[in-house]
Design a protein around this nucleic acid. Structure first.
Lengths: 352, 352
DNA sequence: CTGAAAGCGCTTACAG
DNA sequence: CTGAAAGCGCTTACAG
């Protein structure tokens, strides 16, 4: 393991000079000296030790990302946005998957803290991060949340309720009157907001909320399959199923199919997220598309701005209370949603 | 940012004592002293700086994982296995997505090296890692590959050719004689092996390899869709499509559907990987299931053994040349593959 | 332009 | 059982 002293000896200069050359900042170094050092670095294959560097500079140029569930394609896509925005500024990323388990979340928060990350992004939910967030704040490391709200925190979000309301209206306009909602874990604010939007959408059409049509799921395919199966056994049977994410919607389509019914002929299905696969399943899935990649990228840009501000107090203090960036969603209508059985185009329109 | 000196002062002991207590090893410390220190740690919220620790110990208890494509559910599943095996031993994981781009791969390898990772796992392909691998070796950090071969490296693998041969035979047994293969990038050894297996499977049934039925893809849904579309326009039209991964298979099913044909009535489709979604699309996908999670876990266990051996020379030297662990695959027959049009059960049997 | 020296926050022989 | 001190590999005032 060759170090800065080896390079200094090889180049016949001091370690201070090596440091200056390697860091390539605007510090003046004679061209000839620089060349000697560079050659020694090359010859020896020197790679500066980031641990030592971080220890001195009190910054690691590394940020953490906590996601609840890698198996859901939604999060890898967020991760891509986060990662691209990070590497654009030469920041490294430490990626942690909590599996929605509080113990893993705590473990990772601790690890990230001990590794002195410059900041952290927390995507999705599953556990309470107030404590984690406080711990980071104490260490002066900014925190940005994706897709959840709380008092005084920085976040990047979409309007879950408005999006869910629109999707529900899409179904009422098609004449559906028994519209089920497959929720995700009700502990999540994003899920609560989607439920609110769903209810608002029903109300807009003069429909009553029926709790038998609301089911809690866990965002997995199986959960969508099983919930849909139960829903389809009910009487009267819903003619539309709106799922709180695409994976559950895909599970629901499978359940409708296995029940000997067709989508959208007998039952319409609408998802949420807009994962890539949604346009490749058949029937192609109508869904609320979230700008997932951009959500990640925006969160990272916000975080890095906060980090830079911390390192560089000239930029002024951190904004009070926590900023929120809102990103738009879009209802993408594909094949999985259609007219309610027996309805005619326009049936639902007076309701809107 | 409170440090070990603060704790020592608060507890009225030396920093050496604090260090011993915090590290909780078998070093003898009087119970009363220990209690004082622990209380001070608690009161102050002390979190030891891993940078300083790593600098002294010359180990970070952190390993890197390089994956080529987070958008393919195959890799997140590998990552879960890697991560669980790592945290079981209290190792942290730095996760890097190369997007199959050589520049990103090089950038991350450099970063991981500078951060003094104890070891690295390289999953999948897309770029050449001989150089990266050498660089790590020079720094004494072990490397384990998942799913690719090369001389003298450690790896965890499946038998791609045998698996592809079996899947091909499954189709020939169903009476298919025009079987297309949607390959992934032909630069990957895993893809080359799958092509070999496909050809062997054809040969077993006395079928000739037809290069018009082989297409190179990129493992994405779109690529599967477009390749299948082109294939379906050929004359004679293949009655079966075997894709080198599930995402392309799902794209292929969509293409068959959009061409007004049915799966498996007109065209059978078989995938490779066994992602969770494969059993939730309709028709459910017949596929070669890879023990993905276990592949990741096995790779991490192998890596950690190499790391421990390096730290602890009593365990003996690193095994010569590179070990390979082989994991089994399984053909999971679902709905997407069936008898060739016009064929009768048993038609293909004499061929085997 | 260059170098000697202090210091980041720990761990670990060494001495007592 | 406990502490003083050296040292890990860097960066950065400070002096020249």
């Amino acid at each position: 393991m060759i170090n800065i002293t080896d390079v200094a000896r090889e180049a016949g200069v001091s370690i201070a000079t090596v440091s200056r050359v390697v860091n390539n900042n605007d510090y003046p170094v004679r061209a000839a000296t620089r060349a000697q050092v560079l050659e020694a670095v090359e010859r020896l294959g020197f790679r500066p030790n980031d641990l030592a560097r971080g220890l001195m500079q009190k910054r690691t140029r590394t940020v953490g990302l906590l996601v609840p569930d890698l198996a859901n394609p939604y999060y890898p896509e967020i991760a891509r946005g986060v990662e691209d925005a990070a590497s654009a500024q030469l920041y490294a990323l430490v990626f942690c998957n909590t599996d929605r388990r509080a113990d893993k979340a705590e473990y990772y928060v601790n690890t990230l803290l001990q590794k002195r990350m410059d900041g952290i992004i927390i995507a999705g939910g599953g556990t309470d991060f107030t404590e984690a967030s406080t711990a980071f704040a104490e260490y002066g490391a900014p925190v940005v949340f994706i897709g959840r709200h709380a008092e005084g925190v920085h976040s990047v979000q979409i309007s879950n309720s408005a999006a869910a309301r629109d999707a529900t209206s899409h179904l009422t306009m098609l004449g559906h009157r028994a519209i089920a909602f497959l929720a995700g874990p009700l502990a999540l604010t994003s899920v609560q907001d989607r439920v609110d939007g769903y209810r608002a959408g029903l109300e807009d059409a003069g429909l009553e909320f029926d709790e038998r049509l609301l089911r809690e799921g866990d965002f997995g395919e199986r959960s969508g399959y099983e919930s849909a199966q139960a829903l389809l056994a009910q009487d009267p049977r819903p003619t539309a199923i709106f799922a709180a994410n695409d994976l559950m919607a895909i599970g629901a389509i499978a359940a409708v199919h296995d029940a000997g019914l067709t989508v959208p002929g007998d039952v319409s299905v609408v998802g949420f997220d807009g994962i890539a696969l949604a346009s490749y399943v058949r029937p192609a899935l109508t869904t609320v598309a979230i700008p997932t990649y951009e959500l990640g990228a925006a969160a990272m840009r916000m975080l890095l701005e906060l980090v830079e501000r911390k390192q560089n107090p000239d930029l002024g203090p951190e904004p009070e209370g926590g900023r929120t960036t809102w990103l738009p969603t879009e209802l993408v209508v594909r094949e999985s949603s259609g007219l309610a059985p027996g309805a005619q185009r326009g049936d639902g329109e007076r309701a809107s």
